[in-house]
């Protein structure tokens, strides 16, 4: 909080991360050049993880940044903003992100499930924040947008079953012929 008043700006979020329970990165996106290289980013993620993994305190001031976080079983979700940012906005982004992930994965927020649906996660992340500007903070509408784009690509397990089913059917028909 160096400057008294904030310059009104839309660029709220500096980064969104998902780490696993060893502090390794699963998904991460940085929206400004606080950590320009992958090496610095990884270093930052490691330190952040060490600081946050033991106590679930939801918010921490870290290296002059405000980081809000949430964890579930083996996943850690982070949203990072500048130290002068309204912490509640950051938390609302974090919650929207978590809810989106949780709904897409049908409440089983685990590393394995997340890895299976990594492409949808990436789309969801892009729908959440774009270049640091909050695009959408409603889980439902993010899912809607992600789903709309994914109509032709069946991804969930049921759609995999559908594909198998239709393949079986086609096979049957070809055998019958």
């Amino acid at each position: 909080m160096e400057a008294g008043l904030l310059e009104p700006s839309m660029y709220t979020v500096k980064g969104v991360l998902i780490l696993d329970n060893d502090g390794e990165r699963i998904l991460s996106k940085y929206y400004d050049d606080t950590y320009p290289t992958v090496k610095e980013q990884k270093e930052f993620e490691k330190n952040l993880f060490n600081k946050t993994s033991r106590v679930n305190a939801e918010i921490v001031m870290f290296e002059g940044l405000t980081c809000v976080y949430r964890s579930n079983i083996d996943l850690y979700f982070y949203v990072i903003g500048s130290s002068s940012e309204n912490e509640l906005i950051l938390v609302s982004v974090l919650n929207a992100f978590y809810d989106t992930v949780s709904q897409i994965l049908r409440k089983s927020v685990e590393k394995k499930m997340l890895m299976d649906n990594l492409d949808v996660m990436m789309l969801a992340m892009d729908e959440l924040v774009d270049g640091g500007v909050i695009l959408d903070a409603e889980a439902a509408s993010i899912i809607h947008k992600v789903a709309a784009k994914n109509d032709d690509v069946p991804l969930s397990e049921r759609s995999v079953a559908n594909v198998l089913q239709s393949a079986k059917d086609q096979l049957k028909w070809s055998l019958l012929k």
Partner: peptide, 17 residues
């Protein structure tokens, strides 16, 4: 939108200052 309200508050505060 609460975000828009926050934005308005910042604009108003800056103007006042």
């Amino acid at each position: 939108s609460p975000y828009a309200m926050c934005m308005m508050i910042r604009i108003a505060a800056k103007y006042l200052d």
